[in-house]
Write a protein that binds this DNA or RNA. Structure first.
Length: 279
RNA sequence: UAAACACCAGCGGA
């Protein structure tokens, strides 16, 4: 039973919902985890009606099943349906509340989300982070900051959200100050800071951070490359591009548009053919 | 083994 559940989970993760369904159909017995995994799987693959169908006929539901269904509606832009279920569910936990709040935040209804946040019986670090991120993204940095200071504990996501918020709103020095104070950083924190510098024409600062990073992913490389491209430093971009391990479609496109914008149509075309050779 | 949060990385789409 649980090995079938694992298979379903793995298929869903890889977007192979039909295969998941096959396993589901052939199982001799199913438990609430099985059903919930399928509901979640259909939701994540945009098949919300199918998810709802299963949800309605599943023999038993727990708070996770309800929340999964709510999350499905939200992911598919149906906030009202989500709220109806939220009101109807027999018990709600902190995840249910936070899911609902995120739904409203994604729709830009910050005031209403905040009401729910204030009303919820208990909050955890994810609830706080969701609010902070939404405020920060929309430039309400004072609100974000207030919550950030108010929250009982902060994790790397809380810090990164604040840094990204300042960086995205052009308050790059405040972002930097916060970044320096971070108790721990991961590659996403570094990337947020690098993108902030690159976007504010502080490409040298971006480069310095990039060189100091303990580890880099494709996003790190592409951010710095794009930064050079945007500042017309196509040779520097090219140099990094050549050194970059595991170039992806984003890297290639950045370079091609870089050459195109610099009226070097020939080079752009050359890169394009190289990309095709590379597969 | 099932539900919620952070990097406006390039181009494009509605």
């Amino acid at each position: 039973l649980s090995s079938c559940n694992v298979m379903i989970t793995n298929y869903v993760k890889r977007g192979r919902i039909e295969d998941a369904r096959k396993v589901f159909d052939e199982m001799p017995e199913r438990d609430v985890v099985t059903w919930t995994a399928m509901v979640s799987g259909y939701s994540q693959n945009g098949k919300i009606e199918e998810a709802r169908k299963l949800f309605d006929i599943m023999p038993e539901r727990n708070v996770i099943s309800w929340t999964a269904m709510i999350s499905g509606f939200i992911q598919n832009g149906k906030i009202e349906e989500a709220h109806v279920l939220f009101d109807r569910m027999p018990e709600r936990n902190v995840v249910s509340w936070t899911t609902m709040i995120v739904g409203y935040l994604q729709m830009g209804k910050l005031e209403y989300a905040r009401e729910l946040f204030d009303k919820m019986p208990e909050r955890n670090v994810v609830s706080w982070n969701a609010m902070i991120t939404a405020y920060a993204r929309r430039g309400k940095l004072e609100d974000a900051c207030w919550l950030f200071e108010e929250m009982p504990e902060r994790n790397v996501i809380s810090w990164t959200s604040m840094v990204a918020g300042y960086a995205q709103n052009g308050r790059i020095d405040e972002a930097c100050e916060l970044f320096d104070k971070m108790p721990e950083r991961n590659v996403i924190s570094w990337n947020a800071m690098i993108a902030g510098y690159a976007q504010n024409s502080r490409i040298e600062d971006a480069r310095r951070l990039f060189d100091d990073m303990p580890e880099r992913n494709a996003s790190s490389w592409n951010s710095i490359i794009a930064g050079y491209v945007q500042n017309g430093r196509i040779e520097d971009a090219q140099e990094l591009f050549d050194r970059m391990p595991g170039r992806n479609i984003v890297s290639w496109t950045a370079m091609i548009t870089g050459y195109a914008q610099n009226a070097q149509g020939e080079d752009a075309l050359q890169i394009f053919s190289k990309m095709q050779e590379d597969g």
